[in-house]
Design a binder for these strands. Structure first.
Lengths: 237, 237
DNA sequence: ATTTTTACTTTGAATAGTCAAAATAGCAAG
DNA sequence: CTTGCTATTTTGACTATTCAAAGTAAAAAT
């Protein structure tokens, strides 16, 4: 008799571990490779010693590689798990907005708690009910059930060409107030804007909106708004 | 300057504590008052020593009264918290059935995990989306947001009058196989049946269903099916 | 090169929740 | 009363996660 084959995603991680994985995944995306204990610690809101010991545990569990005084990096297994957590998070976010009508500025927060409690069974239902969406309300792509993630590289309002209409594709900053501002100014994903000018020295980006007139953004804010070249609408090309 | 007034339900309990409260609430309903450490322990699947120490913690937190060698009993505060947990559980169950189309035989299980992760904000939305329901898919009444619960005392298939049509009102046993059986035999809440006879010595209850003919149930199963006298349908009174 | 800084690791301790196993209380029989 | 049984309580230990604070290595600065 052969052993029962257990699904790949059967690895059970505590929600603490899930959060570390998620964070590590982000950081190693952003930072290119090894994540330092200092970064990890401050991102997780713990003291550095805690990050060190968690890094070791993850390594022991085969979810990460840890080199003292150098950093951690997820293994393939760790990355898969991270992607599953991210999938849960983003699907839940979209679900909360679409089905429960919550404001997009709060769903990140809510999903943070729910992502650890949603079973595969429930997740599949949400996925189906939402008609297998590919992005969450902030424009963040949703990993597939198999842990595959396609992140198109995009320009932002801070570095896209001037004078050409752009569609807001993704908002990187999940801060509540920021999102509320973005929404109130009509800059949610899907909105169309043109960057009129940039004064880098002053750190300001001047936008031209479709029917709302001008708006100035700080450079940091502009960099958090990813865009895609707008499809020329009928009668405009 | 006066202190900010914090909402009553602000007490934060770990999910472990929430589970103990829920369990305690049930047991002291069923058993009349004090709950013994043995009962609590076996209901929670822990050793008696663990129950003792948790009982003490609950007492320290003001959620229960604990008398050594006698038992625990929830305080008013503990009962309120328990009712909030039960509200979350039951609302989530109904949501899973109605919105996510999960089978009622599995929602108890799922709600067990979600009930600790659903915020008030999310819960209110579910409540509204479900149009403020008063019972979950098993017929269990849903406590109000203020922690009030109305449990009509009901007869069961094991003790209701013979020969009179009854409507299934509530199924007390949440066991997956049992629920699947109940459903497949057309005995879900809302169904109408008549108890034809009871042979107590043999522990058997014979039912007459609307258009499905006879069915025999064990006494334990019958006792788990609560009923209400059926409203005489038009043309039958 | 030697010092200083910064980042990291280690160590010791705390909390929540748990178990195993030893100690004990209360009661039931004799 | 004394023995025994059962339910309960205690004690000691263990895991996961965390912090504070002391120790250390590598990099930066002089």
């Amino acid at each position: 008799m052969r052993k029962l084959r257990v699904p790949a995603a059967a690895a059970l991680a505590s929600s603490t571990v899930e959060n570390y994985l998620k964070q590590l995944y982000r950081q190693q995306r952003a930072g290119g490779g090894m994540v330092g204990m200092g970064q990890l610690a401050s991102a997780m809101g713990v003291v550095p010693g805690t990050a060190t010991s968690m890094a070791k545990s993850l390594a022991e569990a085969g979810l990460a590689r840890y080199t003292p005084r150098n950093g951690v990096r997820l293994t393939a297994a760790g990355e898969q798990l991270a992607l599953h957590v991210i999938r849960r998070h983003r699907l839940v976010e979209l679900f909360l907005v679409k089905v429960l009508q919550l404001d997009w500025s709060v769903v990140d927060e809510e999903a943070e708690r729910l992502e650890h409690a949603v079973s595969d069974r429930v997740l599949e239902r949400m996925d189906a009910l939402l008609d297998f969406p590919t992005a969450d309300p902030h424009g963040d792509p949703i990993p597939s059930a198999h842990g595959r993630l396609h992140e198109p590289r995009r320009l932002s309002l801070a570095n896209c060409p001037l004078g050409r209409p752009q569609t807001i594709a993704r908002v990187l900053n999940q801060d509540r107030d920021f999102l509320q501002f973005v929404e109130s100014e009509g800059l949610a994903p899907g909105a169309e804007v043109t960057v009129a000018s940039r004064i880098v020295a002053a750190g300001a980006v001047k936008l031209q909106r479709r029917r709302r007139g001008e708006l100035s953004l700080g450079l940091a804010a502009a960099a958090a708004m990813l865009v895609a070249p707008a499809k020329p609408a009928r009668g405009e090309g």
